[in-house]
Design a protein around this nucleic acid. Sequence first.
DNA 1: GCCAACGTTGGC
DNA 2: GCCAACGTTGGC
Length: 152
Amino acid sequence: MNYWLMKSEPTTYSIDDLKHDKKTSWEGVRNYQARNFMRDQMKVGDLVLFYHSNAEPPGVVGIAKVCKLAHPDRAAWDPQSKYFDEKASPKNPIWMMVDIEFVEKFSHFVSLEELKKTKGLESMMVLQKGSRLSVQPVSQEHFEKVTKLGKN
DNA sequence: GCCAACGTTGGC
DNA sequence: GCCAACGTTGGC
């Protein structure tokens, strides 16, 4: 079983949206590295730290779970979609997404600042300078540490 | 709103 | 295949 961190801007899609929807397709990833993680490594049951980026303040707000393996992101060939990519088509989807379901919203919001201050999390990818990847792997140890903070 | 860091594009 | 120009991300 693998652990992940996925970023979303709360003005676009927040943990409360996921809680309301119960589950969602993670559409709109347009970065090859992030796509490859979803396509090649995510398994049903993998747990995800749900991260609010471009937020005030940014941080981890809860947990989601992968509930469907990667499948084509149809928004890529929908000209009406803001995620439209003219190179994508049903025959050549290019972009993939997994589905995730709501697990929990933390009782304690774990801000980026708190992550930075917590001993043992220094090597988390999200804390590295210039790290912009919106889908990233997290070690089990880091996942458990962050989850513990969130349940405080 | 600024801007550093990073990814992508396209001319050569 | 290099790399400058451009676009995007995301913290501040």
